[in-house]
Design a protein around this nucleic acid. Structure first.
Lengths: 199, 199
DNA sequence: TACGTTATGGACGATCGATTCCATAACTGA
DNA sequence: TCAGTTATGGAATCGATCGTCCATAACGTA
């Protein structure tokens, strides 16, 4: 029987993520990751293939986590609280960006910006993620409409796309330099302009 | 008197921009730029300094252009058409992303994502650009409010921030893979939810 | 026309970074 | 305890890339 691995794969992926997150794909050296994880290059390549595969792994995990966070905030619950859940989600995302004092942004946005154009795997994974988020938002908006908190004449698909755009946009303008207070206000404003039920 | 330059600086910067736009900062080689512009490395370095300085130049020009486009769509005109101008601007931005079949995205977003965290020049320039766009949008929203097309109870500063977020967000979700039709719908929806004057 | 100055562009040097290689270590089942 | 297998980690390889250097060219001026 073979010699067992001496490292925890989860932990190594976490460290690798920190590196890619901090310095991007091209800006991260395999030496950096070896140093950060304490692994030798041989172990690193043996366990994860090459730099590209390792990034795909990290990127995929991140995308999964992004959707899981949204599911945690949005999925399930009574219609009566659907609008509250939506509000909680949008504010959480704004807060994430607002409190990102190191300006690291979101690895999904960063990775897509750097690689989506030339890397089909990254492009596909990020597109899937958008679709999944859209579905979650649409479901929740429909629930809020059923309960009468959002005008039922509005197209839930379109409102979902708008909210997704706002959430991702907050990340973008945050990275571009808008201050935290403004970011929080944007979340408020976006929720405030949603069409309420016709009285 | 010295020998004059044989190249057009504007044209060289344009070619360099194409390269950086297509492959990012780290992903672009100076040899690529030399090839694309037809200049030798000596001329390139002699005229623009190093790779970083060249990128800063290109990035700065791009930011200027982004603001100029917004000014072209927004600045000036009668209050009666302010909402039309706003609509035109948001739709133009959506159309830009929707028709970007090569998925190049916006150099401002791409450059900020890749470098803002570690390059104060890029961070500063992108922040300035956001501020300038905010000002343009706020002015136009105020005009629309004066004419009664937008509820005057709304805070123009906040609506401006929201619209800016939507515009930048469309770029982000477009790069992440949403289809052109959805992008156009987002622009429509964003304009549709703006609070209209109380009847 | 001769000179001083700057432009040109391709060769060159030095570094850097991804990946491979290898000698050694660790572990398990027989 | 021995053999077989995989892990380890650092040295070595190999290609790529930034920036420099230099011989030459072009231009204006005296």
């Amino acid at each position: 029987m073979p010699r067992p691995r001496a490292f925890d794969e989860r932990q190594v992926l976490e460290r690798a993520r920190e590196q890619f997150w901090a310095t991007g794909y091209a800006g991260t050296r395999m030496d950096d990751i070896a140093q950060a994880t304490g692994l030798g290059k041989g172990s690193l390549y043996g366990a994860f293939g090459d730099k590209g595969k390792l990034f795909h792994r990290v990127f995929g995990d991140w995308c999964t986590a992004v959707v899981e966070v949204a599911e945690g905030q949005l999925a399930g619950g009574p219609d009566a609280e659907a609008l509250t859940r939506l509000s909680g989600y949008v504010h959480l995302m704004a807060e994430n960006t607002a409190s990102d004092t190191e300006r690291r942004g979101c690895l999904l946005a960063k990775g897509a910006a750097e690689l989506a154009q030339h890397d089909p795997t990254v492009a596909g994974r990020s597109a899937e993620t958008m679709t999944a988020l859209l579905t979650l938002l649409r479901t929740e908006i429909s629930a809020a409409q059923r309960h009468g908190d959002i005008d039922s004449a509005a197209d839930p698909e379109r409102l979902a796309a708008l909210l997704l755009t706002v959430v991702r946009g907050i990340e973008a303008v945050g990275k571009a330099g808008l201050d935290p207070e403004t970011l929080r206000n944007i979340a408020d404003t976006a929720l405030a302009v949603l069409p309420v039920r016709e009285a």
